[in-house]
Design a protein around this nucleic acid. Structure first.
Length: 195
DNA sequence: CTCTCGATGCACT
DNA sequence: GTGCATCGAGAGA
């Protein structure tokens, strides 16, 4: 499996969100390697999406969303969780894809320890949960995810387009009706929410 | 199974 | 001071 190329992320955020399904998120901690398949994503783009952190313009916090594509955007939320995004957008725009859930493939016992939970959907079926399971620190903000290193994304499993479902995004109050959450149908590690 | 609610800290107004 | 791109516990059905 090779890291995704920069050009993968240099396309419309909504397209990148769909195509990230099935790709592998890799976390290298010394000799330990964690691998998870991306099974749920959400697109957030600045120019037409009030729910996007970058909608009102560039600030210190959201600078990564305006920078080179393929970098990690990690933000702190609700006083106790972090969420992981990848910057992705067409040239001269801004935006990113929230990684909402992964299916654990390697390093499961380490994830169980991180989460203090047994193997099952609750291990990684949410954005805060997967960051905890993968031990991703906030200092990884702006890390280049197209280069092999402590955290990166590689090619993975090909997902049949008929298995990709689009739904409304979770937990937002603005631009609720955009169908920019993408999930792999029937995957056990996708978070379940009302239609 | 469903729904509600509190925890907890920071960016931004 | 307000509002979060969340989670898990607890109550009710």
């Amino acid at each position: 499996m090779q890291p995704l190329k920069r050009s993968f992320f240099a396309r419309d955020t909504v397209i990148v969100a769909q195509e990230l399904l099935g790709k592998y998120l890799i976390r290298q901690i010394g000799n330990l390697r964690l691998v998870g398949m991306i099974v749920e994503t959400e697109a957030y783009r600045a120019h037409d999406d009030p729910a996007c952190h970058a909608y009102k313009g560039k600030t210190a916090r959201t600078a990564v969303l305006f920078g080179e594509v393929g970098h990690a955007y990690i933000y702190f939320i609700y006083g106790m969780y972090y969420c992981l995004n990848v910057s992705a957008h067409s040239p001269h725009l801004a935006g990113g894809v929230l990684i909402r859930a992964i299916e654990p493939l390697e390093g499961i016992s380490f994830m169980e320890q991180q989460r203090n939970k047994p193997f099952g959907p609750a291990l990684t079926n949410g954005p805060g949960k997967l960051v905890q399971a993968f031990a991703i620190p906030p200092t990884f903000n702006d890390l280049d995810l197209t280069q092999q290193g402590p955290l990166y994304i590689t090619t993975g499993k090909l997902i049949d387009p008929s298995l990709i479902n689009a739904t409304r995004r979770i937990g937002i109050t603005k631009a609720k009706d955009k169908l920019w959450r993408f999930i792999i149908a029937d995957n056990k590690f996708v978070s379940h929410h009302k239609p």
